[in-house]
């Protein structure tokens, strides 16, 4: 009986850790195609109404109640206002989204992918978006960082869900976004300089998950590692990026967009 209880406990812990999965590309949609398309378009229109040429975008891919304390979203990327050439040769204006996605068939690795708002929100848990609009000057530098390929130069394909933003041993979607932001701010793709400045100025989000659970994840869950951390486990979150930009006067606004209404992120 005692072993049976242990078995159930182990299952519960593993499932709860694995629900905090972030950067996987969405596959199945909980909402109808029309609902997702309509929501994605409304997010685009909101950002466009604010005149955002580039902004930080986030989605909620898992039930909010399952996220560790301090985390509001599960996947973060950079949206850039673009001229998009369609398959029929026509051109249209909208946002393209620059993502780091965890590989589905190899969770310890990631790839960079550009997609569009309806792809980004496909399969979300809630029709809810995080939007951080940087200052106009930083928007411009973000676009320059992406057009010059700094996002690709900074990509480390070794993935960990709880990667430490102070070193480059692993990367997840949100840390990659932070790296691109710092590359834009300092106009460099020198990872050593980016990490030194991250450590000097950025306050990460502590991960409030028990040591036992983290140890289980470390041993058994692919794409979760504590190897890059010292005693304290902390990682990059969408909200911590917002606080960082606000602290240094590089943010225009940070909001949560849901049901056609916006509320402050913090």
């Amino acid at each position: 009986m005692r072993y049976f209880k242990s078995l159930i406990l182990t299952f519960a812990l593993l499932f709860s850790l694995n629900t905090f999965a972030g950067s996987q590309q969405n596959s199945e949609s909980k909402f109808s195609a029309e609902e997702v398309a309509s929501f994605a378009k409304s997010v685009e229109k909101y950002a466009a109404k604010q005149g955002a040429r580039a902004f930080i975008i986030a989605r909620l891919g898992q039930p909010e109640k399952d996220l560790p304390r301090g985390f509001q979203f599960t996947h973060t990327a950079i949206a850039v206002y673009s001229q998009i050439t369609l398959d029929n040769g026509n051109k249209a204006k909208g946002y393209a989204i620059y993502n780091l996605y965890q590989n589905a068939d190899n969770p310890e690795k990631s790839a960079l992918m550009t997609d569009y708002p309806v792809d980004f929100f496909w399969g979300v848990e809630s029709l809810k978006a995080g939007i951080i609009i940087p200052s106009p000057d930083l928007q411009l530098r973000l676009i320059e960082a992406i057009t010059s390929g700094k996002n690709q130069a900074l990509h480390n394909p070794n993935y960990s869900l709880i990667s430490n933003p102070f070193n480059n041993q692993f990367q997840n979607c949100t840390e990659h976004t932070l790296n691109v932001i710092n590359a834009a701010i300092y106009e460099t793709d020198d990872m050593t300089r980016i990490k030194a400045n991250t450590e000097a100025y950025f306050t990460p989000q502590p991960v409030k998950v028990s040591r036992f659970k983290l140890a289980l994840g470390n041993w058994f869950a692919k794409g979760v590692s504590t190897e890059d951390h010292e005693s304290k486990i902390q990682t990059t979150s969408f909200t911590s990026i917002g606080r960082y930009l606000k602290e240094f006067g590089l943010m225009k606004e940070a909001v949560v967009y849901e049901d056609g209404e916006v509320s402050k992120l913090f």
Binding site: A37, R53, A54, V80, Y81, S82, Q83, I84, T85, L86, D87, N88, N90, A92, K93, A96, T114, Y116, L140, I143, E144, A145, I146, T147, S148
Partner: peptide, 25 residues
Amino acid sequence: AQVASGVVAVPLLVVGSTASASQAV
């Protein structure tokens, strides 16, 4: 409403003086 596949996206910003911006529209 229509649906279409995006083939390529080019940022809409920045008229040219910097090399990095040359790929933008």
